[in-house]
Simulated assay, not measured.
Amino acid sequence: MTPHHAPGAPLHIAGTGTALPGDPVDNARLGKTFGIDEEWIDLFVGTRTRHFGWDLATGEIRHSLTDLCAEAAARAADAAGARLQDLDFLVLATTTPDRLLPTTANEVADRLGLDHLPTYQIQAGCSGAVQALDLARALLAAGHRSGLVIGGDTTARFLDPSRTPTDLPTQELVNYVLFGDGAGAAVVSTEPLGEALAVRTLLHRFSGRGRTPGQIIDWDGPVRRDTGRQMLSEDYKAVEEGVPVLAGEIYWELLDSVGWTPADVDFLLPPQLSARMTARITESLGASTAHEVSCVVDTGNTGNALPLLQLDRLLARLPDTGRALALVVESSKWIRAGLVLERTHAAEPRP
């Protein structure tokens, strides 16, 4: 089985936008709030700052997922030079919707003033943005011209500022230092608009048969109806061992799908679990000729937003004929995902 190739179903990323709530929270403030050693955060995670849509002192929610997704989507439309009302569909991926119903996708559509268009919400981990792009491509192939892809997550229901490290098992504590809140969005189209990115290959494949989950997030959040179920659990050892291996498989599979060598890649968008993990992955790939495009050191792990945050940074840096690979690993039940990307406003793709 090979990754999906773009020729039968053109997919272009015409513009991107991001939204991060409030001021950045550094490790000193995070450590003080949760009673976690600041040096341990630096050494274990390597992330410098992250953003939260809720106030660390009071727990008050100041930015919902709907707020962040709508803001990112409006910025993406502006960057693409597109009117929101002219877009044909909306696809939103998240682990942490604001409610079960109405869906966050529909709340965002309403906030943006959209109506009479198909909307979809994908429940997913870090690979959700690629899954949303995969669905968007199917919609474009079915006759739609352009649409919105959005990914975002918030932590308000899962991180409790009143808890202390002595209250938490290690599998739950690690999530307090890994994650942040944010959203990213992209306008996608069948034709290149402006300085667009063409998706030459899209990989999205479940790879978790028989494997123990690397992460579990219980649906009930802090309301534990079954005291035997843990609200939040991260098997960091399994993630640490499994993600670099899967990232390497994705890297070579994407290269093989388009006949490129590592020297043909100008930019690499590696998985963004944590800054330390990202450094390990890029070193293990040996992709020394490619410029790294990462954001996790500044944003923390924002889940479904991460690939779109990276694409937003890539668009600002990619030259006229640049090429890029994006690698995404979803460790809750192990999904391999990725993108082969190339600038398309030049007259012809590079040979």
Results as ranks from 00 to 15, higher is better:
residue 50 R to F: 11
residue 50 R to Y: 11
residue 50 R to D: 10
residue 50 R to A: 14
residue 50 R to Q: 13
residue 51 H to E: 07
residue 51 H to L: 07
residue 51 H to W: 04
residue 51 H to S: 08
residue 52 F to P: 14
residue 52 F to I: 08
residue 52 F to A: 10
residue 52 F to Y: 15
residue 53 G to L: 06
residue 53 G to R: 10
residue 53 G to C: 01
residue 53 G to Y: 02
residue 53 G to E: 00
residue 54 W to Y: 15
residue 54 W to V: 04
residue 54 W to P: 06
residue 54 W to F: 15
residue 54 W to T: 05
residue 56 L to H: 02
residue 56 L to P: 07
residue 56 L to E: 05
residue 56 L to T: 12
residue 56 L to I: 05
residue 56 L to M: 01
residue 56 L to C: 11
residue 57 A to T: 08
residue 57 A to F: 05
residue 57 A to R: 08
residue 57 A to P: 03
residue 57 A to H: 01
residue 58 T to N: 03
residue 58 T to G: 09
residue 58 T to R: 06
residue 58 T to W: 07
residue 59 G to A: 02
residue 59 G to S: 02
residue 59 G to Q: 12
residue 59 G to E: 05
residue 59 G to C: 03
residue 59 G to Y: 11
residue 60 E to C: 03
residue 60 E to T: 13
residue 60 E to G: 01
residue 60 E to Y: 03
residue 62 R to D: 12
residue 62 R to C: 14
residue 62 R to K: 15
residue 62 R to F: 06
residue 62 R to M: 08
residue 63 H to Q: 14
residue 63 H to V: 02
residue 63 H to E: 14
residue 63 H to T: 00
residue 63 H to W: 14
residue 63 H to M: 02
residue 64 S to C: 08
residue 64 S to L: 07
residue 64 S to R: 11
residue 64 S to Q: 10
residue 64 S to M: 13
residue 64 S to K: 04
residue 64 S to N: 06
residue 65 L to H: 09
residue 65 L to N: 02
residue 65 L to I: 11
residue 65 L to K: 07
residue 65 L to Y: 06
residue 66 T to H: 08
residue 66 T to E: 15
residue 66 T to V: 14
residue 66 T to N: 11
residue 66 T to G: 15
residue 67 D to F: 01
residue 67 D to A: 02
residue 67 D to P: 05
residue 68 L to G: 08
residue 68 L to D: 12
residue 68 L to Q: 10
residue 69 C to Y: 10
residue 69 C to Q: 00
residue 69 C to M: 03
residue 69 C to V: 09
residue 69 C to T: 11
residue 69 C to L: 03
residue 69 C to S: 14
residue 69 C to A: 15
residue 70 A to S: 11
residue 70 A to Q: 07
residue 70 A to P: 04
residue 70 A to V: 02
residue 70 A to Y: 10
residue 70 A to D: 03
residue 71 E to D: 15
residue 71 E to A: 15
residue 71 E to R: 14
residue 71 E to F: 00
residue 72 A to P: 11
residue 72 A to Y: 03
residue 72 A to C: 08
residue 72 A to T: 05
residue 72 A to H: 01
residue 73 A to D: 09
residue 73 A to S: 15
residue 73 A to K: 11
residue 73 A to R: 05
residue 73 A to I: 07
residue 73 A to L: 09
residue 74 A to F: 00
residue 74 A to Q: 11
residue 74 A to Y: 10
residue 74 A to W: 04
residue 75 R to Q: 13
residue 75 R to F: 13
residue 75 R to W: 01
residue 75 R to M: 02
residue 75 R to S: 14
residue 75 R to D: 13
residue 76 A to S: 01
residue 76 A to M: 04
residue 76 A to K: 06
residue 76 A to R: 10
residue 76 A to E: 12
residue 77 A to H: 08
residue 77 A to E: 03
residue 78 D to M: 09
residue 78 D to I: 12
residue 78 D to E: 15
residue 78 D to R: 13
residue 78 D to G: 00
residue 78 D to A: 15
residue 78 D to P: 02
residue 78 D to Y: 01
residue 79 A to L: 00
residue 79 A to R: 12
residue 79 A to N: 03
residue 80 A to D: 09
residue 80 A to C: 07
residue 80 A to I: 06
residue 80 A to F: 04
residue 80 A to M: 00
residue 80 A to H: 05
residue 80 A to V: 04
